[in-house]
Amino acid sequence: MPTPLIDPIFDGLARALDVHNRRHDVLATNLANVETPGFRAQEVDFRSALARAFEQTEEAARPADLVEDTSAPARADGNTVDLDLQMAKLAENAGRYTALTRILGKRIGLVRLAIDGGR
């Protein structure tokens, strides 16, 4: 992977945003199927995907792996989606995503400041 021209953190942050986006998709899928009999809740392998996002390797671009979400027991209809838990995860994930966009924005601002020479 070539060395980024301006700031290596840009790539990492962008990939971290990707990981959050994918997790948002997975959580939305869980919530869409909250009443589907037999549906098994899913989750992304968040920790390893985030750690990988900031590595300067080809491996970093690989999308996050999916795992089964076993944090809630199955209901009588075999469904394992816990509404409250998934909503909490969704809110947390969206908040982290927004935080990352702010950080990325600030870093771009810093680079711009350097380009402008502080004027």
């Binding site: 945003l17 959050h20 986006n21 948002h24 959580l27 939305a28 919530l31 869409a32 909250v34 509404l83 998934q86 909503m87 969704l90 809110a91 994930n93 969206a94 995503y97 927004t98 966009t101 702010r102 990325l104 924005g105 600030k106 870093r107 771009i108 601002g109 810093l110 680079v111 711009r112």
Partner: peptide
């Protein structure tokens, strides 16, 4: 719950669109 998903998605898209520094 799914309306909340739509709202969260919208907020995320908005914050992504406002990345500019």
């Amino acid at each position: 719950a799914n309306v909340q998903v739509v709202n969260a998605t919208k907020r995320m898209a908005e914050s992504a669109l406002s990345i500019s520094g």
